[in-house]
Amino acid sequence: MTEAAERFFEALPSRAPEVLGGLADGTLQIDLGDDHRTEHWLVRMRPGSVRVSRERGPADAIWYSSAALFDRLITGEAQGVAAVLRNESTFSGNVVLFLAFRRFFPDPPGTRDPRETARRAAGRLR
């Protein structure tokens, strides 16, 4: 496990109030594989809160990713849904939990919110 991934998981509880809305309610098990070893993270999500542990356990959904791909996800260099669609990672269970969890990942470097771009353009038109 990389130090960046450790810091990412440690920061989840403090970021949850701003990231998680009302649909996230359940447990997501994240399995990160590297060589011949798999590390497990259990992320219990509720609206506005997250609890993280290094366990396997009963989960409403399971997401498997390589540790290398996960490092790219936490830097914005890769996108979670695209990785699943390309079979670079696998997911089973309650898809709402995966969609909610991906909101913790940053946007790709250099991207801008199209709403903000439109607001700036509208301000220049006045």
Rank of each mutant, 00 (worst) to 15 (best):
L99R: 14
T111P: 11
L97M: 07
M1H: 09
G21Q: 13
S66C: 01
R86M: 14
V96P: 03
S49A: 15
G80P: 01
R124E: 15
R46L: 11
A24T: 08
A100C: 12
A4N: 07
L42G: 00
T38R: 08
A82I: 07
T38P: 05
H36N: 15
P108S: 09
A78G: 04
V50S: 04
Y64K: 14
V50H: 07
T90G: 11
G26H: 03
A68H: 06
V95W: 10
T75P: 01
E88G: 00
S49K: 14
G123P: 00
L12Y: 08
R112C: 14
A16N: 00
T90Q: 13
R124V: 13
A59Q: 08
G48D: 12
A16E: 05
A4G: 00
L99Y: 14
V50I: 05
A5N: 00
A121F: 06
P58R: 15
F70R: 03
N87V: 08
A61C: 13
G76R: 09
N87C: 10
V43E: 02
S89P: 01
P106Y: 08
A11E: 14
P108Y: 00
W41K: 10
R112Q: 13
N94C: 12
D107S: 09
A61Q: 05
F104N: 04
R56G: 04
G123H: 09
R44L: 02
N87W: 13
L73G: 10
A24K: 09
L85Y: 10
W63S: 06
E6L: 13
E3G: 14
L12G: 02
A67T: 07
V84F: 02
R115S: 15
G26S: 12
S92G: 03
R86H: 08
E116R: 09
G26E: 03
E39D: 07
A16I: 03
R72V: 07
